[in-house]
Design a protein around this nucleic acid. Structure first.
Length: 411
RNA sequence: GUGGCCGUAGCUCAGUCUGGUGAGAGCGCCGGGUUGUGGUCCCGGAGGUCGCGGGUUCGAAUCCCGUCGGCCACCCCA
């Protein structure tokens, strides 16, 4: 085997496979701009405390999945397991949010765990954060954003699962009731769930091993305060209004402690895998305070890029070149290179095989490199024309040299 | 962190149980058929420390021990 490999739980993405990633990133960047989100660029590591305080001391992420290290100044730093904490920290550091701030991000996240399908130690998330808006329509907008993103990428059979956790005051009463329910049935619970009854009882709700016990457990939805209830009603109505279908999942709680009220996930139902969820989000009105900022309402989501690409399946790779220029033998190479340079300056995506290979080999390369069309620079050049071929249709014609760009754009 | 499966050509794998005839197939790659044409077809070619270390044996891809790595599931999450 090769001497050096990518570290456990990390993956390389090389051309042409990376075309899938480029497509997802382009779709995200475009959609975020259309929704009014602008990029936020934050460090890939933070003071460990930022994540402990925001994500939650008792969460799996903080308990066992953090890439924590000490730098040469003795500071405890952690590679970000998610980006929301960083963006909130950055907003607070910049003086807090006055009015509204809508930010998007794209980049690698890190969690130390045993890798498997759809789970890596380094994975990529694309997300948006909507700061400073308490209106339920903001939740609706963010949920719709994720839904349209998956729609645009044609991820099949996506289900939006929706729930509300209520506000902090609602949760106190609810917690007591839930803990009481669980403690009566301690012997029926799995070992993991048993441990969580004291530390993080909400997490028991989505435990796969305890579906039977949990089926009749009290749920947050039945304990919403007046305001949280009204908020949730308006979120649902808003989703109906913009045409985003959803199902209520009363056991959906999500793994990060900072959420309140609305939480949701995107799950491709046709895709058989344990790590099915391709994205999720929620409202986190308390997070700014948790990190020492002024109270600021906020809602956001994170989409898992790696999982989206998995769920998209083995569809044909997109074509990425407008034109491939071939030349009929070395005497025509200089003319062909000059043509390529000109067309690139005119804005076309153009490439060429520089190895003096046979035309057959050049056309093979054109196809493999993802070109839509090809032209041959050869004897016809003397008449001011080139042979032009549509590689998708297979049709061929001749085109005056000065009209190549026009012809390419028509195909 | 717990459990299961697996490391042989760039990729997917056969061969391992029952050790021994010159390490194979498909796909991919390169070339030719078509000295100016891809994606289909036909022909040819290149490419391998059988993960690594040790042991058993006249002889190890094959048996034993160790080690590293990959995949999958649990937990949890993107």
């Amino acid at each position: 085997m090769t001497r050096f490999r990518a570290p456990k739980g990390t993956h390389d993405v090389l051309p042409p496979e990376s075309r899938r990633w480029a497509r997802v990133e382009a779709a995200f960047t475009d959609l975020a701009a259309r929704f009014g989100y602008e990029p936020a660029i934050t460090p890939i590591f933070e003071a460990t405390e930022v994540f402990v305080r925001s994500v939650g001391e008792e969460t799996e992420v903080v308990q066992k999945q953090m890439y924590t290290f000490e730098d040469k100044g003795g500071r405890s730093l952690t590679l970000r397991p998610e980006a929301t904490a960083s963006v909130v920290r950055a907003a607070i550091q910049a003086g807090g949010v006055s009015g509204v701030l809508k930010a998007s991000y794209w980049g690698p996240m890190f969690r130390y765990e045993r890798p498997q399908a759809g789970r890596s130690r380094q994975f990529h998330q694309a997300g948006v954060e909507y700061f400073g808006e308490a209106a339920p329509e903001a939740d609706v907008e963010v949920i719709e954003f994720g839904y349209r993103f998956l729609e645009e990428l044609e991820v099949p059979d996506v289900e939006v699962r929706l729930n509300s956790l209520g506000d902090e005051e609602d949760r106190k009463a609810y917690h007591a009731e839930l803990v009481a329910y669980l403690q009566e049935r301690l012997d029926l619970l799995s070992e993991e769930a048993r441990g969580r009854v004291e530390t993080n009882p909400l997490r028991v709700l989505d435990s796969k091993a305890d579906v039977d016990v949990v089926a009749d457990a009290p749920i947050p939805l039945d304990h919403l305060g007046e305001e949280a209830f009204a908020h949730f009603e308006r979120v649902k109505a808003g989703l109906d209004r913009v045409g985003v279908p959803y199902v209520i999942d009363p056991h959906l709680v999500r793994g990060l402690d900072y959420y309140n009220r609305t939480v949701w996930e995107y799950v491709p139902t046709g895709y058989e895998a344990a790590q099915a969820s391709v994205g999720g989000g929620g409202r986190y009105d308390r997070l700014f305070e948790l990190l020492g900022g002024r109270p600021t309402p906020a809602v956001g989501l994170a989409m898992g890029v790696d999982r989206i690409i998995l769920a998209m399946g083995e569809r044909d790779l997109p074509r990425v070149l407008d034109l491939f220029v071939t030349y009929a033998g070395p005497p025509w190479k200089d003319e062909a290179v000059r043509l390529v340079s000109r067309l690139r300056r005119e804005g076309l995506r153009v490439d060429i095989d520089l190895g003096d290979r046979s035309l057959k080999a050049q056309f093979r390369a054109a196809d493999r490199r993802g070109a839509r069309t090809a032209v041959v620079v050869g004897d016809e050049w003397h008449q001011g024309i080139v042979t032009a071929k549509d590689l998708v249709e297979g049709s061929q014609t001749t085109v005056p040299v000065e009209e190549i760009a026009t012809w390419v754009l028509e195909h």
